[in-house]
Design a protein around this nucleic acid. Sequence first.
RNA 1: GCUCCCGUCGUCCAAUGGCUUAAGACAUCCGGCUUUCUACCGGAAAACGAAGGUUUGAUUCCUUCCGGGAGUACCA
Length: 510
Amino acid sequence: MRPVRVRFAPSPTGPLHIGGVRTALYNYLFAKQHQGTFILRIEDTDQTRFVPGAEEYIREALDWCGISPDEGVVEGGKYAPYRQSERKNIYQQYTQQLLDAGYAYYAFDTSDELNTMRERLQAEGKNPQYDATSRMSMKNSLTLSEEEVAAKLKSDEPYVLRIKTPEDEEIQLNDLVRGEVKVHSSTLDDKVLLKSDGLPTYHLANVVDDYLMKISHVIRGEEWLPSAPLHVLLYRYLGWEDSMPQFAHLPLLMNPDGKGKLSKRSGDRFGFPVYPFDWKNPQSEEVSPGFRESGYLPEATVNFLALLGWHPGDEEELFSLEELVKVFGLDRVSKAGAKFDIEKAKWFNQQYLKELPNSSLAKYLLKDLSENGIESSPEKAEQVCGLMKERITFPQEIWSTAQYFYQPPEHYDEKMVRKKWKAEASDALLAYAEVLEGSDEKLSAESAKQQLQQLLEDRQMGLGKVMPALRLALTGQGGGPDLMSTMEVLGRQEVMSRIRQAVEQLNGNT
RNA sequence: GCUCCCGUCGUCCAAUGGCUUAAGACAUCCGGCUUUCUACCGGAAAACGAAGGUUUGAUUCCUUCCGGGAGUACCA
């Protein structure tokens, strides 16, 4: 068997979309599983759509996911260059080869002429395409005399090269996820292979590069399936059918409502990120949110993406990248498009977040703190994270829901005040503050609890009467992590002062 | 329009020509735990798109229809 070499071949026309990330991931997993090579090739043959920064974005996105290429524009490799615009002269010999063999021809039609042709065919109820039946009525090297063609080529008149699709042939390909796919050549059109700017189109460039780079498997999105027969034809005409890569067309990532494939618009419409990280459109300055900035961990994102269109076969769901490499297989990739479910992504994030060491989480919190002008020791931040991490989905929730670890509450949850703030409780709290005042040892979760229990016993009250009020006084909220531990983090002085502040404020108002 | 691909709970998906009362996870709902909760534990509800075949038997194979998606550019 030949060595596994796969490529991820995006075009730098914008930020890498999360669906692209999944395609890259599947390529990576497949390569690593077979001790193969994962290649990043930049398909920038359309210079009109080039977007500055897009290529860097793509590479950073792969790095963030932990799926960096083995060969590529920065890594280099035996088959460099890996940017198609830098391979322009390579394609020439193959277009010539196709021309010489009669598998391709020059076409001189202007876009107006093409439109006219399409309109005419449409009106006649025929397929409006440049194909075996319509090509003979167009301006090309099949209809023009040799002299005319030579003259046109000599002049500055722009031309393209088109493939001459066969009239009556069944084209078959064996897709690793879809099985046998058959298409009749009469439904294919004479696609442009070489554009008038001298650069190849995707179809030619992709076939030539895959051949030259010894790609063994082409794993790409399903949007390429319709043009796969054309690629098969190209391999055949170039005489490379024996070394043609195996194809695997992945199901598309769809909008949650099933209407259309996931796109930039989906993010705006459904309110979730569709990019690995924030992207600022260089023209409009508009920022599209990313998974990273939204608080998703790369491990969670990768895990989530892996399960969208692929299934391990057993009931395990949590996989590290290394584990995925072991269990992944194209045979378990599903065929139907997968609707994007952000709730599942959140669940994965939660799973990974609670396994994160406090010190890693603390970095997020410390950043939020310094942005809000609050100083904190890393130790305290870690303590807070330790208490909060089992009840959050995103790191930024620690700051947004547990500010009270750093600032006394400014207001108190009204509903909870009505339900739980009773005179009896408030008296007990004041007494509790007195007790704390009198003790001079460091407040710990255990000592706090002991002292409170002692006090309540003397007053013949239950914990349930006082705890909610105490939480309210300390945090302003009705819920949160273990109260005694919360007090330990706050410290004795702070607990006392917050109790007194709450009593003053809440009793005054009601 | 034409070509191709697809169709199991709301979502991701599993299994299978009879072992199926169709499994798991997310989400939902209910209960429990708890000082509280977004955590945890327990439970409920929830699907083979339709019709015809083939077969002793079909969710599974075939056909048609319906539905969805993709492609149909000198974009990738």
